[in-house]
Write a protein that binds this DNA or RNA. Structure first.
Lengths: 350, 350
DNA sequence: ATCATTTCGGAATAGGCTTTCCAACGTAGA
DNA sequence: TCTACGTTGGAAAGCCTATTCCGAAATGAT
């Protein structure tokens, strides 16, 4: 039978009184303090705590200790499978260390991102993890860097995911190499004439994947015609629109469309289908990320696997590892080309 | 140029000293206090704060005010699009109220759920939101109810999503009615012979949808043969396995498979395809939830739309609305049948 | 010009917890 | 039996902020 305190939560003070011990003893009993307390007392305190439904006030603990037990995570859009997979990894990694995750979404706005970092910093989290690729360009990030630096100066850790340009630790994906290898694999499957769908100009992830892909093709003396590269938002709808644009421009001769992310590839496949060029029969499509959904669309999507959940876990580990204390370190996770039904072998003479 | 405090974050005290005012004045200047402070002072304080990279300590504020500014959200699995869409809504709703969201994942384990509620309660969040349907059954939830009751007794708000059995406020989806309507629509499209895939027995969401569907068919004198109902985990793989089981049992005559969730339906489509019964030509498939992905699979999935993001927002609003203070209230959100390519019209005589 | 009000800065207290410091106790060694 | 030392409980200080309570200054009215 739980009590009915009606109003204020039980405090440690209440527990101490109920157990007939001092505050200090109660505190030492209920958390793993360095000092021992007599088993009799321990027990009395625990019983009293149970009786009062006591739950330690984490905020008060944070104030007293000067360190909270949270990890702050910023994502562009939690409903996007790319980010939600990373978030799952972050949550798992944090939990392994007994930390709680607080999350905020930036909606891909730098202004919001800055604002959120400001707010989140107030939580005094142990770590702030930023995902979602930044825009290139010199000055655009100054305020953010200043804010993050202030945070690290006071003992906080910052980890960037998939972003190496800012002076902080990072978990990065070798987008360039992955895309390059993808291009090679596709060439070997017989593809020769390509189109590409990128993210907004200046988005680094998109840029790296695009140039990796282009360089991979260049190894075989192939170039993508500039008219066959379109750009859109880094979303399903962005991919849809970009593919429509390709159709308008005319891609009759094109055999395969490479989209720089799976969500864009999925949108593109829908647009292509509506435009009468269904994959895989009329045109092939490849993506990047290997989000869970890539397996289940029809045709299943050829893509470059990133161990998304591992990326999230690694970010937490990196932040908390001692080496990260002294200097910024970068962990690179590998990628793997995954060939599925969306890019069948090209018949000779096609 | 940010300072280099090297160690401890600047405190309000530091700001006050730097600005040459009292602690009280600094506090009143930096947050929207009820009392006014002279513009000169305000300015001085703000400048000092900027100079010191001051960021208010949210934990300390929470202790001083006796109320934190966080919302705690529990989901089964954040990588599942159903939950990540709801989470997006919760985050948006919380942000509208200036609240921060902390998230934890239960992995569908009651034990973990209880444990997490205990931990989260320590945050003294304004609201705890639980998603993921509970299992039916009398006593299994006692400990959880006790914990949540202790929380509400001390002024916290609890909101359940898609769950009406526990004595707390809830945002519920009319699963029964939606499934029933779906059955009617499918009947009108000409379907007569059905199979169904459910979640684990005892999972309420699954049960409601299954019985709604069955009742909808019963209105037209149709029943599903017991052999044509299988169950699996509430995941993509669960749907895959359940569909395989259906194939084994033999569903030659079946025209349409209804899965109680879209993720299961997606898994089922894959299994059916592998088994030589591709949708929509060889068999039709319908799901429930209308996750974003439902649009993009091929064939696009007929399903019952739930405004997932709205559900999340509503949960926050409900928790914070004054009416919820006095008694537990239930908000029901409507559903809408969405017909897509996975359930084409049945040719007469088929 | 005087008195009643209002305005607003500052000192002090509260809030829940951790931790340092002190003192009392018990044990062991001589 | 006496001293030295390690244990362990308790009192109190400290963490950072909000807010109450005072008092002084400024304002307005008569």
């Amino acid at each position: 039978m739980p009590e009915r305190p009606k109003t204020a939560p039980a405090t440690l003070h209440d527990v101490a009184r109920e157990a007939g011990v001092s505050l200090a003893t109660a505190s030492r009993s209920l958390n793993g303090s360095a000092r021992k307390v007599n088993d009799d007392y321990r027990q009395r305190v625990h019983e009293a705590a149970a009786r009062l439904d006591y739950s330690p006030n984490l905020s008060a603990q944070a104030v007293a200790k000067g360190a909270s037990s949270t990890v702050a995570l910023l994502v562009s859009n939690i409903a996007d499978p790319y980010f939600s997979s990373i978030a799952a990894g972050v949550i798992r990694g944090a939990e392994a260390q007994g930390l709680i995750v607080t999350m905020a979404v930036t909606e891909r706005s730098s202004a919001r991102e800055l604002q959120l970092v400001r707010t989140l910093r107030g939580q005094r989290p142990r770590v702030i993890i930023l995902t979602g690729s930044r825009f290139e360009g010199p000055r655009s990030q100054d305020a953010l860097v200043a804010e993050l630096t202030a945070f690290t100066n006071t003992g906080g850790r910052v980890v960037l995911i998939s972003q190496r340009e800012l002076p902080f630790s990072a978990v990065v994906v070798d987008n360039y190499a992955g895309a390059r290898r993808l291009a090679n694999v596709l060439f070997e499957q017989g593809y020769r004439r390509f189109a590409a769908i990128g993210g907004d100009r200046g988005l680094m992830t998109s840029g790296d994947r695009l140039s990796g892909f282009a360089d991979g093709l260049a190894e075989h003396g192939i170039a993508i015609h500039p008219d066959h590269i379109t750009r859109g938002e880094f979303t399903r709808d962005g991919g849809f629109a970009a593919a429509q644009e390709l159709l308008t421009k005319g891609i009759e001769a094109v055999q395969l469309v490479f989209a720089v992310s799976d969500v864009m590839a999925v949108g593109a496949m829908s647009a292509l289908r509506e435009g009468g060029r269904s994959a895989p029969d009329s045109i092939a499509v490849a993506g990047f990320d290997d989000i869970p959904m890539a397996r289940d669309v029809t045709p299943a999507l050829t893509t470059v696997n990133i161990p998304l959940e591992e990326v999230g876990m690694r970010a937490v580990e990196l932040a908390l590892s001692s080496t990260a204390t002294t200097s910024d370190s970068v962990v690179t996770v590998g990628t793997r080309v995954i060939v599925r039904a969306s890019t069948p072998l090209v018949r000779a003479g096609d």
